[in-house]
Nucleic acid binder design. Structure first.
Lengths: 184, 184
DNA sequence: ACCTGAACACCGTTCAAGT
DNA sequence: ACCTGAACACCGTTCAAGT
């Protein structure tokens, strides 16, 4: 499509590449997707990708940014639902992102750019959760504790397929409190 | 070392390979460790590894088994400490395994053998935790819920470096109960 | 500025052959 | 049964050259 050549539309071409890369990453997985395959999909030579992106990780980051952006657009519509509703929604959202969550964690040590993206992502989620918790009078260290637990459990649920019922029990246990077994 | 040739010691040679593979996986990471590097360390030709192991994932599984075995040996010494102590101990243990946790999750889709190992590992941990929770009168679905949450949070803490204090807050929050904000 | 063909330095794995 | 040299089919990335 959209030919480039004269400064017509660098942005468009870039979007096109991210499109196809995202689709392949999500369906085949990051490792299983070769730069050659992405190039083929975008109708360019493999090395052309390096004109637009520093390397494969950089391309991954652009895909993640796109996914995040789309997610936020959808989030806006239900920002003031109760927290547990939001968590279930978020789970469904991230399920789409599938193996990419695991991929990001596995590559944290191999790409500083990716690590930065990851840290920012968690900071962002932390702020969001903090906002919701503040409505319940929870802030400071407690808020950060809750937020960390929530994100860990969400990530866990993503990488460990869990049936709907167990999933609900887990979220409810977190948000409504435990079957108390404090202090043996 | 230990020459093979006549049926002297297949087991010994295999241990030798797992040794060096484990060391490299832990220090350089799975992806960053080539079969060639492992072979070099073991003093054999690269393709010789395929006499002992089906592929790289199979070798990873052997390394994981070794790590697990060692862990259990150390666990035996403190099996009846209180649960939160055990969790802290486990965290320290798994920290050694470092990026391998993320590696396993990232490769779940690419190796059925690895997925089987992973599922068995969680089942095993689940049983262990269930034993401890039973002492607090928790079993059935509740026990499985607690166990799932615990393992997710442990995995989360592993892949997201957290200072000692926050870590303790998180574990205590889980085992001693939340700052209650039930039912808005 | 944008794109390419060709090459580089790998990678995991297989095969046919040797002992 | 154990081990190897050589090759296969990739891989991400770089470079020099073209428009």
């Amino acid at each position: 499509m959209a030919k480039n050549k004269r400064g017509v539309d660098r942005q468009v071409k870039q979007d096109e590449i991210v499109d196809i890369a995202g689709e392949l990453f999500l369906t085949q997985g990051y490792e299983a997707t070769s730069m050659a395959a992405i190039a083929r999909g975008a109708g360019v030579a493999p090395n052309t990708l390096y004109w637009y992106y520093r390397d494969k990780d950089d391309l991954l980051i652009s895909v993640l940014d796109r996914l995040l952006e789309d997610g936020f657009t959808r989030y806006a519509a239900l920002a003031d639902k109760p927290l547990n509703e939001l968590v279930f929604w978020l789970l469904k959202e991230l399920k789409q992102a599938g193996g990419l969550v695991a991929t990001v964690h596995a590559r944290l040590g191999e790409s500083v750019a990716l690590r930065q993206w990851h840290d920012q992502f968690h900071a962002l989620m932390g702020q969001l959760v903090a906002g919701h918790l503040a409505a319940h009078g929870i802030d400071g260290a407690d808020s950060r504790t809750e937020s960390a637990i929530l994100s860990f459990v969400i990530e866990g649920l993503l990488s460990h397929p869990t049936d709907q019922a167990s999933q609900r029990r887990i979220i409810d246990r977190l948000l409504l409190g435990p079957v108390s077994y404090s202090a043996g």
